[in-house]
Amino acid sequence: MKLKYTLVALGMVAFGASSAVASTLDDVKAHGMLKCGISTGVPGFAFTDENGNWQGFDPAICQAVAAAVLGDSSKVEYTPTTGKTRFTTLASGEIDMLARNTTWTFSRDVDLKFTFAGVNYYDGQGFLVPSSLGVSSAKDLNGSSVCIQTGTTTELNLAEYFRLNNVSYEPVPIETNEEARANYMAGRCDVYTTDASGLAASRSTFENPSEHVILPEIISKEPLGPLVRHGDDQWADIVRWVLNVLIIADEKGVTGAQAQEVAAGPDPELDRILGTEGAYGAMLGLDRDWAVRALNANGNYGEIFAKYIGEETLVGLARGLNAQWTQGGILYAPPFR
């Protein structure tokens, strides 16, 4: 762990020294493609469809950014990353941004030198067990084996939580969500622990989801969001405000399809966002219609949520904490002015 951080830090120094020249925005425009890191696959969050296109809650952010910056939501090069490789991949400049169920933490922000553009999913760590195990609380898990993804906050939370509660366990370290799922199904571990959203996604793929329960304990805060490297504030702003625009549009009930129509409507904030008032796009280094295009890519935040992971889908997640602040949730984008 320590070594990894050192390597990343070393890399950042070397990279930072040489990258001061060109901005990420210019690089992306020159390359004509947005290089986006995603996960190796979590149902609903990132997957390939039958035509070989990446889709899901996380790629949707990449697509919105690509639409805003390059004018085409399909101009994205995806790099699947594991919990362990994601930060090195981002730090080395192999990708321009990372959108992969990644928790915003102090050390990732400060020590690894990344800038989190915001939160697109408020999550927390949970436990998935077969009902046949007969436990109803995580504190009953004494002596169990636990499938856990390496290089994640999950790994660290679990150790702390079980130590505090005097629960002994045997970790089964695993690289990717798919392998964890397969191992759990094969009985290699009694418990699978990760972000609750990921657990729900995994459970939805089981032949008999009802034979598995997610325990009531949520043992951590996991604000997940897209991130970029330190040192290019303009680029961070672009990703941050693309995300914010998706969230504000959801708050105001403006769908992606309506974006064009309401652009000259009575709501001044929407006018500013959609480019009919002021020159906010230019301040970001983008054109006037950047936000319209971002919204057109996959719709607003609520539409993306509903399309990939919402209650209508097999993943079946409720908005919960991720409802707008006006609806009892904590999703709250700063004002656009």
Binding site: W54, G56, E178, T205
Partner: peptide
Amino acid sequence: IIGLLDPIGIGRAALSDIKWAGLS
């Protein structure tokens, strides 16, 4: 592991499609 999709990587991504998930 470094983000190139060999047959297993392809399979992993495809297996995350909720329509088909679980057929590992």
